[in-house]
Design a protein around this nucleic acid. Structure first.
Length: 403
RNA sequence: GUGGAUGUAGCUCAAUGGUAGAGCGCCGGUUUGUGGCACCGGUGGCUGUGGGUUCAAGUCCCAUCAUCCACCCCA
């Protein structure tokens, strides 16, 4: 094997047609729901000044894809969509009318070690409401979170909801540890806290405190909202142990999990009233979520929710030689105008073997043969690849049969 | 960043330290205008890379790179 072989970078993927089709399906489902809820599409640049992200997202700056551009500026690839959209909120303040609802579907880049359900370039679908402090805004985006999973076809999605204000007296390190309760258990959480120099007794105290937290008014409003909207009770739950260790979240926080998908949560959301201010000095409250497209896709795929796109009605027009091709093109044009999918073999050859094989490999149902004989008689032959039958037809009959 | 597993043909994998193989794929033929099935034939490799041990290394040792998994963190 040559050592000159160039391959995709770690954590980056090539997406083949079969996979791309699935992604297309899911993407359109998600957009459909966003649009139905009145959210408007938005896009931000792939590259931003490094300063935008640094300091806003956790303390671990190593995860940024950053470099110096040709003008000597420190730049970073889009790390998430929340921070850039907050930049937008500040930058265009006078031009925006609130409440402002937008959705955004773009790749994000994180230089993490890849593993299952985790890539260095991954697609995120964000939706946020800006300019509304009320918990009803949180309730809306949480309901939206669930509605998307409903629309995709999941039977057991569940949104776990909590409020960061309930944790006001607990240090950040403890919150991070408690967030892992479900995964590592009580003992694990306490061990984790001890590692971060929290007293064992203090750790236990925090844990007990969290276990006994009662839902506050905000949570209650959200839960009522979800119930009124008509979601099944098993689809949402107050969970004081979810913590989403985002440094910028400061109100309701939530994540969506899929019962059968063990990799992790597929969506995470939070209120971030101070983020816009800390980026641009302008006060704009916000709340919303980031949906992990790749994980959602994996989960949907695992549960076989994605319809298998078939080429059942797809057609291959064979190509015989220069003369017949002229006529073939006219026919192909007509068929496509009827909305049919017609592939034409891109290399005319009297040897049809390859062309039929090509049709078979691509799962096409029909092959139209227009060779010397057909041209002479002003007809075409239509072969049904499933049945193996072949008929000699007039052009008009062909149109009738196929459309 | 930490820990573990694995790197052999295009793919999935074999090969007690002793001549590198199979299945699938691909190409050709049985069919010079017909795929999928069947049969026949063929193409295929510096065993990830670099060192070391040995008469002899795909196999043992070290390093390095890559992939996967877990942790960390997150989607």
């Amino acid at each position: 094997m040559s050592n000159k072989k160039i391959q995709t970078l770690k954590g980056f993927r090539d997406i083949f047609p079969k996979e791309a089709k699935k992604r297309e399906w899911l993407r359109s489902k998600i957009i459909q729901v966003f649009e139905r809820w009145g959210y408007k599409p938005f896009e931000t640049p792939t590259l931003e000044p490094l300063d935008l992200f640094e300091g806003q997202i956790g303390e671990d700056e190593k995860l940024f894809y950053k470099f110096t551009d040709h003008g000597g500026r420190n730049v970073a690839l889009r790390y998430d969509q929340t921070v850039p959209i907050c930049r937008v909120m500040g930058q265009y303040k006078g031009q925006l009318y609130f409440p402002f609802k937008r959705y955004q579907i773009q790749p994000a880049f994180r230089a993490e070690k890849p593993q299952k359900g985790r890539y260095r370039e991954f697609l995120q679908c964000d939706a946020d409401i800006f300019g509304v402090k009320s918990p009803y805004a949180d309730a809306e985006v949480i309901a939206l979170s669930l509605d998307i999973y409903k629309e995709i076809g999941f039977k057991n999605p569940k949104v776990l909801i909590n409020d960061r204000t309930l944790f006001k007296d607990i240090p950040y390190e403890a919150i991070v540890a408690i967030d892992k309760l479900e995964k590592i258990g009580e003992k694990g959480v306490i061990r984790d806290m001890e590692k971060k120099d929290i007293d064992k007794s203090k750790a236990q105290e925090y844990l007990d405190y969290v276990a006994n937290i009662e839902p506050n008014d905000t949570i209650q409003i959200i839960l009522d909202y979800l119930e009124s909207y008509g979601f099944d009770k098993s689809w949402y739950e107050f969970d004081p142990t979810i913590a989403r260790s985002f440094s910028y979240s400061d109100g309701p926080i939530w994540e969506v999990k899929i019962k059968e998908y063990k990799v992790g949560s597929v969506l995470g959301g939070e209120r971030f009233d101070n983020l816009t201010n800390s980026i641009s000095g302008v006060d704009v409250p916000g709340t919303g979520f980031g949906l992990g497209f790749d994980r959602t896709l994996e989960a949907a795929d695992q549960l076989e929710l994605i319809p298998i796109g078939d080429n059942n009605n797809n057609i291959l027009m064979s190509a015989f030689d220069d003369k017949t091709l002229k006529k073939s093109l006219k026919i192909v044009n007509k068929l496509r105008a009827e909305g049919l999918t017609v592939d034409i073999y891109p290399n005319p050859s009297r040897d049809f073997k390859k062309q039929f094989k090509y049709a078979d490999k691509n799962g096409y149902k029909y092959v139209i043969i227009l060779g010397e004989d057909e041209l002479k008689n002003n007809k075409i032959s239509l072969k049904n690849m499933r049945k193996g039958e072949q008929k000699l037809l007039d052009i008009d009959d062909l149109l009738k049969i196929l459309s």
